[in-house]
């Protein structure tokens, strides 16, 4: 059913910290590795060793220059499905292959029902859906639905592959609908924001903005720490200093 659930019990999603992402692509490659063998496999590549290699990936890491001069930043920007609360990619689907789960809010494509009309990719402002030319169906981030509930995996691995792979801890997974969850607290503390709220899709995933810079323009100048002067007037301490010197030599 492509009509959306009135509300979802949970709002599972990702919180991505743009302050510490180093653009290493580990999340993107780990995503590709897991998902080419998991739900809706494979993630086909076209001409992988030729002149024009391309294929379906569910996570892409952009790098942007932001600002100019001393205040300029390089911001690495991972981009994947935001599992929106009101996603038009689901409602435009003519077959019911696209759906939003009422229990956790994950947006999925049923690869056995998709006809590959690509209209959902037109409806997504975030460019999050990628068509698989070989498979003939649309692919998108599944929030690793085949990991997060998978009791065959060790508990530490029951998180999306991208979160597990991130070497800097720039990616967080949790229930953004629960105000007491770790991710919700992080969003509140760091001013997490939605991408393009003006589109009205209500993304669940949040982005944490880069922190204010710490350099010569913003650092506060503190006086150097003073070392206490050795007086040597105390007889006992002089003795111990002498004994220490003798025993050390």
């Amino acid at each position: 059913m492509t009509t959306l659930p009135q509300s979802t019990d949970k709002k599972l999603g990702l919180v991505i910290d743009l302050d510490i992402c180093v653009g290493c692509q580990a999340c993107a490659t780990s995503c590709k590795e897991w998902n080419t063998g998991g739900y809706s496999a494979p993630l086909s590549d076209i001409d992988p060793y030729g002149a024009d290699p391309h294929g379906a990936w569910l996570n892409r890491v952009h790098s942007y220059e932001v600002g100019d001069g001393v205040s300029g930043h390089t911001v690495h920007f991972p981009r994947s499905c935001l599992h929106c609360e009101t996603p038009a990619c689901v409602t435009v689907c003519p077959t019911g292959a696209s759906y939003k789960r009422a229990e956790d809010g994950i947006v999925l494509v049923n690869p056995d029902m998709c006809i590959g009309c690509k209209l959902c990719s037109w409806a997504c402002p975030y460019g999050a859906r990628e068509y698989d030319e070989h498979h003939g169906v649309m692919k998108k981030c599944t929030l690793c639905v085949d990991r997060i509930y998978n009791e065959h995996l060790a508990e530490v691995d029951r998180i999306p592959a991208c979160v597990r792979a991130c070497p800097t801890g720039a990616r967080h997974f949790g229930d953004i609908g629960d105000p007491d969850s770790a991710v919700s607290k992080l969003v509140a503390e760091r001013g997490g924001y939605d991408l393009m709220p003006e589109m009205g899709y209500k993304p669940v995933n949040k982005y944490l903005p880069p922190r204010a810079r710490r350099d010569q323009t913003t650092a506060e100048v503190r006086p150097p720490v003073e070392t206490p002067e050795r007086t040597g007037k105390d007889t006992a301490s002089s003795f111990f200093a002498w004994a220490d010197k003798m025993l050390s030599s």
């Binding site: 743009l18 653009g23 692509q25 993107a28 024009d52 290699p53 391309h54 294929g55 379906a56 990936w57 892409r60 890491v61 952009h62 790098s63 942007y64 220059e65 932001v66 600002g67 100019d68 205040s71 300029g72 930043h73 390089t74 911001v75 920007f77 981009r79 690509k118 990719s121 037109w122 460019g127 859906r129 990628e130 068509y131 030319e133 924001y193 939605d194 991408l195 393009m196 003006e198 982005y207 903005p209 880069p210």
Partner: peptide, 28 residues
């Protein structure tokens, strides 16, 4: 607007995520 980074200044593409055009770029 797309990146939500406007408060830090103008946003320019430094490096695309991939060397070759993907589906989104070919279609859209």
């Amino acid at each position: 607007n797309a990146t939500g980074l406007g408060h830090l200044g103008t946003v320019r593409q430094l490096e695309p995520p991939h060397a070759q055009a993907n589906f989104v770029m070919r279609e859209m």
